[in-house]
Amino acid sequence: MNGETILVTGAAGFVGASVARAFGAAGYRVRVLVRASSPRDNLLGLDAEIVTADLMDPGAVAAACGGAAGVVHVAADYRLWARDPEEIVRNNRTQTENVMRSALAAGVQRIVHTSSVATLGLDRLPADETDPLTHDLAIGAYKRSKVVAERLVEAMIAADGLPAVIVNPSTPIGPRDVRPTPTGRIIVEAATGKIPAFVDTGLNLVHVDDVARGHVLAFERGRIGERYILGGQDVSLRTMLGDIARLVGRKPPTISLPRGPLFPLAWAAEAVAQITGREPFLTADALRMAGHHMYFTSAKAEAELGYTARPYGVALADALAWFGAAGMLR
């Protein structure tokens, strides 16, 4: 299918920018859909047709899908906190539905829906694709929104013949994290000496460019209706913070804190955020999620797609180099 047009949503964002570049490098003609208000920094140097539209506008999304052989839906409201948490759920559900229905109506041959490991349960570690999370067990509005969106896509695959493959990235890190993402904020705060302690948790870290390449592989080789974890390496928060400290020449934090006493701080931070509108660094939902070691395996994607991921330390070094060049580590 090389040479055909692929529409990528969310290409102004962290993951979307890498996905758009990966499809371009694979020989596809890339069309990107971005909001008028989106910063264009991540589009610099990208060889793509730029369509300005709002994913909440079904007509505009339908027009953007016209003539595309494939659609890759990366865009999402990626916030772990909002004054109205249900706004996150509404946004991600409505945007996903608009993209999927428009792609189906346009006769798009293949769709990749970017979900998240947030839609998977953690009953077994490392977790895999066989344990989908139910809406009522999802911690926080963002996780609920991703579960709702993924289940919508699955329902359309079953009922409408939607030609979609689902990918579930773990926790991407690396260059072009302009916002930055919640994990990017941890990297920046740790690198600037503002995280003196840690809680006992862990996550699966992966280079954003490996996730992007995984999208191309899913588009070309993935089975319709299947989900594929695109992950990297399981890492404890203590190890991550220690590695960041060593890379920037700081002393690693050695204080381990229980989660319980941190909840009042999170509630206070959220109360201040209700006034300022600025997303707090610490939230109660984040502390609840930290009660789990969020470890995942990409064995299915490796076996079926030929997916691989570089060592997490390379991703961490690339992230720090980009944040440094962007002036965010001063």
Rank of each mutant, 00 (worst) to 15 (best):
A69G: 15
V8R: 13
P182T: 00
T171D: 02
Y142T: 12
P180W: 01
A159Q: 14
T119W: 00
A315N: 02
A326V: 11
A17C: 12
D128M: 05
L162R: 14
G184E: 07
V19Q: 07
R259G: 00
L230Q: 01
L305I: 04
P163C: 07
V235E: 01
V148A: 15
G193D: 01
D160R: 06
S116P: 01
N91Q: 11
G184Y: 11
T114L: 14
R288Q: 10
K194D: 02
S116L: 09
A141L: 04
R213Q: 12
K251P: 05
A75C: 11
V32I: 02
E150H: 12
A118H: 08
G161P: 07
P311Q: 05
R238G: 01
N91F: 08
G184D: 10
A212K: 03
T119A: 12
A164Q: 10
A164S: 14
R223Y: 05
G277Q: 00
D318Q: 12
N91D: 09
G225R: 08
A138W: 13
A106H: 09
V74N: 10
Y228D: 03
A26E: 05
T181C: 13
F198S: 03
V216W: 03
N204K: 05
E220D: 14
I229T: 03
A53Y: 07
T134V: 15
A82S: 13
Y307V: 00
A218Y: 11
H73S: 10
G249D: 03
C65M: 09
L230H: 09
D57H: 09
R151M: 09
A12L: 13
R176E: 12
T201G: 08
R238L: 00
G174F: 09
F23D: 07
V99C: 07
G45K: 06
S298A: 03
G222M: 04
I50P: 08
A155I: 06
R124P: 05
R213S: 00
V112A: 14
L217K: 02
D77F: 14
P163Q: 13
W322Q: 14
S256P: 03
A106P: 07
W322H: 14
A103T: 09
G174Q: 13
P175C: 08
G193I: 00
G306E: 03
M294Q: 14
D47H: 13
L247G: 10
V178F: 12
V314S: 13
V89I: 15
L122G: 13
G107Q: 10
G16T: 06
N2P: 15
